[in-house]
């Protein structure tokens, strides 16, 4: 049985952004803080730290989850994707380009969580309606944009993807521009 005392670090092996990563954390450390501090994935934003704001949303085993409401030790054996995996981490992914075109971010603090939420939606439902986009975004708080431009960006991306008949590909954009 995996077990650790409060002052004892526990080993974790997880697939993070396509690579097997190993790290050790105390039980009390959230997955969000583990990814930031142990693996340097600073795209994971820590906002409210109690599951309300959605800024820390990442994708675990293909499902969006709050990384502040998961423990680092619970990541063992999981497959994790953070915003760093979008566009292969080199170029902006077409979804990020759509955010840029539509001014769907100002300070950007909530953006990686919103991208993860949008990515999970688009993987499941490549042509969502505006209402469906608003529904999934209801779990993410953005204090800058008023949300309209975020919905515009996601709808624009979905329309382009539909026109080109392409499914959501997290690695897309790598060879673009």
């Amino acid at each position: 049985m995996r077990r650790a005392d409060e002052d004892q670090k526990m080993g974790v092996v997880a697939t993070v952004n396509g690579r097997e990563r190993r790290f050790e954390v105390l039980p009390r450390v959230s997955l969000a803080d583990s990814l930031r501090e142990e693996l340097g994935l600073y795209g994971v934003r820590v906002g409210c730290e109690h599951g309300v704001c959605g800024a820390c949303t990442i994708i675990v085993d293909d499902l969006p989850v709050r990384s502040c409401l998961m423990l680092g030790v619970q990541a063992d054996g999981k497959t994790i994707r953070t915003v760093e995996s979008l566009g292969g981490g080199k170029e902006l992914h077409p979804l990020q380009q759509a955010f840029q075109r539509h001014h769907a971010l100002q300070c950007g603090f909530c953006t990686s969580g919103i991208l993860a939420t949008a990515q999970a939606l688009l993987e499941e439902n490549p042509c969502p309606t505006r209402d469906e986009v608003r529904e999934v975004l209801s779990g993410n708080i953005c204090r800058c944009t008023g949300y309209q431009t975020i919905v515009d960006a996601i709808m624009d991306y979905a329309a382009c993807a539909q026109a080109n008949d392409t499914a959501f590909d997290a690695g897309a954009g790598e060879s673009a521009t």
């Binding site: 049985m1 077990r3 009390r28 730290e49 423990l71």
Partner: peptide, 17 residues
């Protein structure tokens, strides 16, 4: 806030839990 310190166990059977 960060979580207060606690020890952690992840059993694989109900009896262990």
């Amino acid at each position: 806030m960060k979580f207060p310190a606690f020890s952690y166990a992840c059993p694989t059977s109900l009896a262990e839990a």
